[in-house]
C-alpha cells in the first residue's frame, strides 16, 4: 500500500506530466483560458489516464513484450511483438476514449454535458499516450502500481491546468507588453511554475 501511495505522490509532484516532461502541453495551453473549462478537461484526463494505463499494462505484459505470450502455449514463448506497442497503445486509447464517452453519456448525462467536447480531444493528448509509454519504460511490477501511476499522472495534469487557468484569469488585468501577451506570457508563467515544482525533486520516496 505504501508503495502505491509513493508512486502516486511521485507522479503528481516530482514527475509531473506537464512541468517535468511537457506532455499534454497543447491542450494545456489551448484550454486554460478559464478555470471552468480547465476543470472539465482536467477531470476527463484523470479519468482516461486512470483507465488506459492499466489496460495497456495488461496488453503489454500479456501480449506484446518478449515472451509475454507464454501463457497461450509453448509455441508462443519466443514471440516478441514489442515493436507493435505504439500502434496497439494508440488503438486502445482511441477505443477506450470512445467507450468511456458512450458509457458516461448513458449513465451520467450531467457529467457528460460538462465534459462534452473534451473527451474526444483526449485521444490525441500526448499526456495519455505518454502515460502508457512511461508505464512501459518504467516496468511497473503489477497492475495496481500501473493504475496508481496513471491516476497520479492525471492528478498532476489536473493540478497544472487548473493552476495556470487561475493565473491566466488574473493576468488579464495586468499590463503585459504587447509581444508577450497571450501565448508568450503563458509560456514564461509555466516555466516559473515548473521551477516551483522542481523544489519537490529532492524528495526521495
Amino acid at each position: 500500500m505504501e508503495g502505491l501511495i509513493n508512486i502516486f505522490v511521485r507522479s503528481v509532484f516530482i514527475d509531473n506530466m506537464v512541468f517535468a516532461y511537457f506532455l499534454g502541453m497543447c491542450s494545456y495551453l489551448a484550454v486554460s483560458k478559464t478555470v471552468s473549462t480547465a476543470n472539465g478537461l482536467g477531470i476527463a484526463v484523470v479519468f482516461v489516464l486512470g483507465i488506459t494505463v492499466p489496460v495497456n499494462y495488461l496488453i503489454e505484459n500479456y501480449f506484446l513484450s518478449a515472451g509475454a505470450m507464454a501463457w497461450i502455449g509453448s509455441g508462443f514463448e519466443t514471440v516478441d511483438l514489442s515493436f507493435l506497442s505504439f500502434i496497439m497503445f494508440i488503438a486502445v486509447i482511441a477505443s477506450m476514449v470512445q467507450l468511456v464517452e458512450m458509457t458516461v453519456e448513458k449513465f451520467a448525462p450531467a457529467l457528460y454535458s460538462s465534459l462534452g467536447i473534451f473527451l474526444p480531444l483526449i485521444a490525441v493528448n500526448c499526456a495519455i499516450l505518454g502515460g502508457s509509454l512511461f508505464m512501459q519504460e518504467r516496468e511497473y511490477a503489477n497492475i495496481a502500481e500501473a493504475a496508481s501511476f496513471g491516476l497520479g499522472s492525471g492528478a498532476g495534469f489536473y493540478l497544472a491546468i487548473v493552476g495556470i487557468a487561475a493565473i491566466r484569469e488574473k493576468i488579464r488585468y495586468s499590463n503585459v507588453p504587447g509581444p508577450l501577451r497571450g501565448l508568450g506570457i503563458t509560456f514564461i508563467v509555466t516555466g516559473l511554475m515548473g521551477i516551483a515544482f522542481m523544489s519537490f525533486m529532492g524528495i526521495s520516496l
Binding site: 511537457f22 504587447g178 508577450l180 501565448l183 508568450g184 506570457i185 509555466t190 515548473g194 522542481m198
Partner: peptide, 16 residues
C-alpha cells in the same frame, strides 16, 4: 526543464 519553456517564451517575444 523549465528553462525550455522560458526560452520559447523569449523566442515568441522576439518574433512578435
Amino acid at each position: 526543464p523549465p528553462m525550455a519553456l522560458i526560452t520559447v517564451g523569449v523566442i515568441i517575444w522576439v518574433q512578435r
